[in-house]
């Protein structure tokens, strides 16, 4: 089975993000980068499929040079090879452009299934997976909390959470499946895995080698144009309700009625 996993390198979610002095972009000086947590579930799902059906897991990422570290993490988990799309022209790409670039890279590869994380924790859009499926002309299921792939019957079944419940869906493969957190427990890279990852093949691609026009990607090709950043209003610490637990609970109930006005 040919399994593709799209992944992204993102700032570590455990670290507070600050804006730079002009508050136009983020201060990158103290940021450490990790594999997008949702992509780890996608990689794990890919590795489990390989264990069941054989074949290869190929990681695909678009990002600057530093994204190679994220690819190596995925390779250390057990993926076989990587595709790294990196080009200064890609700077500022919106999600639709990102999906187009990934689609261009994927069209040249054999695949039976494409796995992505449900959402990247930095931009929080969750758009690339479904857009990618549309561009590839294949179905998708987003936010899978379970996934079964039947390679003989050429179909995938997944559960996705919807407001107030769950929905179990079936699609023919190839398809794009985006992974929700509950999907599995991603393995940690083993020490031999880390050693091996260093020499696993990573195919470097740029915009030209994908046959794309530089003006169709990056900020120039994007339909979403960032116009600046702002900080959310600062929340002030409120008041601590003093007194014994019982008294405090009583006072809180009073405040919920008098100030919050929910009772």
């Amino acid at each position: 089975m040919n399994i593709l996993v799209c992944m992204k390198q993102v700032p570590d979610t455990a670290i507070a993000i600050r804006l730079d002095a002009e508050q136009k972009s983020i201060d990158r000086s103290e940021i450490t980068y990790v594999v997008n947590p949702f992509d780890e579930y996608a990689i794990e799902a890919g590795l489990q499929l390989k264990e069941k059906y054989g074949g290869e897991v190929t990681l695909v990422t678009m990002g600057p040079d530093r994204a190679d570290e994220a690819l190596r993490t995925g390779l250390a988990m057990g993926a076989d090879k990587g595709v790294h799309i990196s080009d200064p022209a890609l700077e500022g790409s919106d999600t639709l452009v990102t999906a187009k670039v990934l689609a261009a890279a994927i069209k040249g590869l054999p695949y039976d299934i494409v796995l992505c994380g449900k959402v990247a924790t930095d931009d929080n859009t969750g758009q690339v997976g479904p857009a990618l499926a549309e561009l590839l002309g294949i179905p998708h299921i987003s936010g899978a909390t379970t996934l079964e792939v039947d390679d003989d019957a050429k179909k995938a079944t997944a559960t996705r959470e919807v407001e107030g419940g769950f929905m179990r869906m079936e699609v023919p493969i190839p398809a794009v499946i985006t992974a929700e957190k509950d999907l599995n427990a991603p393995r940690y890279p083993s020490l031999p895995g880390i050693m091996k990852a260093k020499t696993k093949p990573v195919d470097k691609k740029d915009v030209a080698s994908l046959g794309m026009d530089p003006s169709s990607v990056g900020l120039a090709g994007s339909k979403i144009q960032p116009m600046g950043m702002s900080l959310p209003p600062v929340r002030e610490a409120g008041r601590i309700i003093e007194g014994e637990a019982e008294e405090a609970a009583k006072e809180l109930a009073r405040l919920l009625r008098a100030e919050v006005k929910i009772l």
Partner: peptide, 19 residues
């Protein structure tokens, strides 16, 4: 102009549309 939170609600991005 759309306003959307990013980076774990650390910041809001203002975005314009070109379509």
């Amino acid at each position: 102009v759309g306003i959307r939170p990013v980076l774990g609600e650390t910041a809001f991005v203002r975005v314009g549309f070109k379509s």
